[in-house]
């Protein structure tokens, strides 16, 4: 693969709550290369969307990015000035939002909303922007004359397509798709995913695909990063995750996913619940639910380490050479 487009280093985003500091995202590092689809997986509340918002610096009070660096083509975003950010947003990195139903302004025509993004970032005439908007709509399979329509005149799946068209408006190199297919029925979801994959191939886009739907993500991602309770626990190629997962949580997640081909597979749920991230002390955040946890997991935080070329995991079992097998 080509050069690195986005690199996230030790990103930490905390939220201030009445009870203390919630360590929503801590020490998350990964990179995305040109033309690569990275699937960012995790259950609800694990900090996936916070990572996305932190990359674009959209975190607002009471949240704050407390540490870390985000490089987009060598340009550092966390320390960038607001003015620079306004230029970078959308022209170089765009978002397909969680629930496109609410991400379109209900009182403006969808064409105007797409044009707005173009007109902010490029010195083109209104007519040129409109022409491009029509092309974009056609690209995502919507009649070009529908630019005049208001969001409520579209179905959920079509709104999602509009959101994709909008994300492509300034031909960015990097797109973050934040749970963008959640809430759509499986048929529409697969259409949208196929469209995304198609566009990615044509335009050589890099995509971060945030989702909690493991099978969907494995079907189109080159690499997968798995998050648990605000930490990145494993990051590897899709193949490695599927066949050689090293972190107990990754393994548990795979075991909890039904398999269409191997129908006899027993689905195992993960016992226990996600820990409260407010004032959480130094430990492996999965230790309360991990069948292999030992003393060290309760007092020390495992770092993300390369277990083999291109495969990273944050687990002490790797260091201690424990065999990862189930006793059940």
């Amino acid at each position: 693969m080509g050069k690195t487009v986005l690199s996230v280093e030790n990103l930490s985003t905390f939220y201030k709550t009445d009870k203390g500091i919630s360590r929503a995202v801590e020490n998350v590092s990964f990179t995305v290369e040109e033309g690569e689809i990275l699937g960012l997986i995790g259950e609800s509340g694990c900090g996936k969307s916070t990572v996305a918002q932190s990359i674009l610096r959209l975190i607002e009070y009471p949240g704050k990015v407390v540490k870390g660096k985000v490089f987009l083509h060598e340009k550092e975003l966390i320390s960038a000035s607001e003015a620079d950010l306004y230029d970078i947003r959308w022209s170089e990195i765009s978002v397909i939002p969680q629930s496109a139903m609410n991400a379109l302004n209900p009182v403006h025509r969808i064409g105007e909303q797409i044009m707005e993004a173009i007109l902010i970032h490029e010195h083109v005439s209104k007519k040129e922007a409109l022409d491009r908007t029509k092309v974009l709509l056609e690209l995502v399979g919507i009649d070009r004359e529908r630019w005049k329509s208001y969001p409520h005149e579209f179905s959920g799946g079509m709104k999602q397509r509009v959101a994709i068209a909008m994300a492509l408006a300034c031909y960015p190199k990097m797109i973050i798709s934040d749970e963008s297919t959640t809430g759509l029925d499986v048929l529409t979801q697969s259409q949208v995913i196929a469209l995304l994959k198609d566009l990615q191939r044509k335009m050589n886009l890099s995509i971060i695909l945030i989702s909690h739907d493991l099978p969907m993500v494995t079907s189109i991602s080159d690499k997968i990063a798995i998050m648990y309770a605000g930490k990145l626990v494993e990051w590897a190629s899709t193949d490695d995750i599927l066949h050689d997962a090293r972190h107990p949580y990754s393994r548990a997640l795979l075991d909890a996913t039904p398999d269409l081909i191997n129908r006899d597979k027993k689905i195992v749920s993960i016992p226990g619940t996600v820990p409260n991230l407010v004032n959480i002390k130094s430990c492996c955040r999965f230790h309360t639910r991990c069948p292999f946890a030992f003393e060290r997991c309760k007092v020390e935080e495992p770092e993300l380490k390369e277990v083999k070329p291109g495969h990273f995991a944050a687990c002490f079992l790797e260091e201690e050479n424990h065999e990862l097998t189930y006793t059940s």
Partner: peptide, 26 residues
């Protein structure tokens, strides 16, 4: 608190424009 306000911000729309064009109308 609506998503489209955050989207407008992500699009690089200036705060003033967000306030008057996107938020005020609604």
């Amino acid at each position: 608190g609506e998503d489209y306000i955050m989207m407008a911000k992500a699009k690089g729309v200036r705060d003033r424009v967000i306030k008057y064009k996107h938020a005020m109308r609604n």
